[in-house]
Design a protein around this nucleic acid. Structure first.
Lengths: 213, 213
DNA sequence: TCGCGTTTGTAGGAAGTTCCTACAAACGGG
DNA sequence: CCCGTTTGTAGGAACTTCCTACAAACGCGA
């Protein structure tokens, strides 16, 4: 299977600060090709036509309109597009079915971690629907689970890396070669599904705190 | 002058999705050491004491309380801390003076680009106050300005990089060595003040669109 | 308890990126 | 016309990423 074709993405999020940080995050996925962004529903509708959009990520509550309405209109303009709605709070199953009927492919709530959004985006890009698990087990558990998968050495390295200790120094302190430390790093990232250091840092900080509580 | 000591940061932002993406952004600055995060004001107050916080970034409107009140209380607990308030909309000069009087070091609005937040964070870490320019010239202008500083070759490279064309291919197409392309990249990043590819991509996309309009 | 598949600790190579330095040719003012 | 700056070009050192390797330890089922 080929490394999927790129995602022609349009993002509609009201607040610049959050739109920016979301976009930076999304643009780290190298299959993401941003073809447009907007703050409002009307503007989004106006610009969707010229953009050959593949996936639309849109906030539920926009300044000028409600995202569901916009999404419905958008879908009648480009039926082949996948819509991912960002809701303010988790949606109930009944509400979800309304969304699905409207043709929306997935809903991610603002209470979800951002990885959820990215995972969902990658998932729905080919038109599948993705109903994220209503977390029968809390995300906390999943994370702890992941953590316990790390081996002793891996944990040591993870901790040190989360404290921004440079690879070289870690190698010295553990008495192994830099290459070895990199190997641990690779394995940690694979096991936890991370791609970049900030993810690891955040994970470890949260984990530490969770451990204390 | 030494590369400043680290910023012991506490972040209070209600929505997980945005908190996460903000944090990932902030954690890319390697002087940032996250010592805590929270969704609510009360919780923030409870935890500030044990954390030896250096800078507190806090949203203006929290679920349980108003950020200003929390910030004031927080400041009476740790007077040495710098507070950066994230406001929902740009604050007027008069409102700003209220904030400043309360001891808040800076206010960044959710309508601002995220670079503004980071710049401000780095600025206030030593206790200075930072009143961001009320944009006598629009950010658009500043950006265009920056763009015109790129030389011909730099622009070509910038465009190609923004389209995710790999360095090697750029080098071939321009008939120069990879090293040269890297040099352009370096210069582009310096001139525009960027640190990572997503910033460049977003900048170029926005610039293209601005150019078309 | 033996044997075999998996995980863990260890490390090397290739390719790519970042950061810094270099240098000649072109450019732009005074 | 001279000199400082910008532009086009590239090399080196150090580091990261990705992939492969391999022996020792581990765990589980016959």
């Amino acid at each position: 299977m080929k490394p999927h074709r790129s995602i022609r993405l349009f993002v509609t999020v009201g607040q610049r600060l959050f739109r920016d940080s979301l976009l930076f995050q999304l643009l780290q996925q190298d299959e993401v090709d941003l073809v447009g962004e907007s703050e409002t529903g009307i503007d989004t509708l106006n610009r969707l036509l010229n953009a050959d959009v593949n996936v639309l990520i849109i906030e539920e509550n926009l300044r000028d309109n409600d995202g569901l309405t916009i999404a419905e209109n958008a879908l009648s303009l480009c039926p082949s597009m996948s819509v991912l709605l960002i809701s303010d709070s988790p949606v109930s199953a009944s509400r979800m079915s309304i969304y699905l009927e409207a043709g929306i492919k997935s809903v991610v709530s603002k209470t979800h971690p951002i990885q959820e959004l990215i995972k969902t985006l990658l998932y729905i890009r080919n038109g599948q629907t993705y109903v994220s698990s209503w977390h029968t087990h809390s995300p906390k558990e999943t994370e702890l689970e992941a953590y316990t998968e790390l081996s002793g050495r891996e944990r040591e390295v993870a901790k040190m890396m989360a404290n921004r200790i440079p690879v070289k120094e870690i190698a010295e302190q553990l008495g192994v070669s830099c290459k070895t430390v990199h190997s641990y790093k690779d394995r940690i990232f694979i096991k936890l599904g991370f791609e970049r250091l900030p993810e690891l840092i955040l994970f470890m900080k949260r984990h530490q705190n969770a451990g204390m509580a």
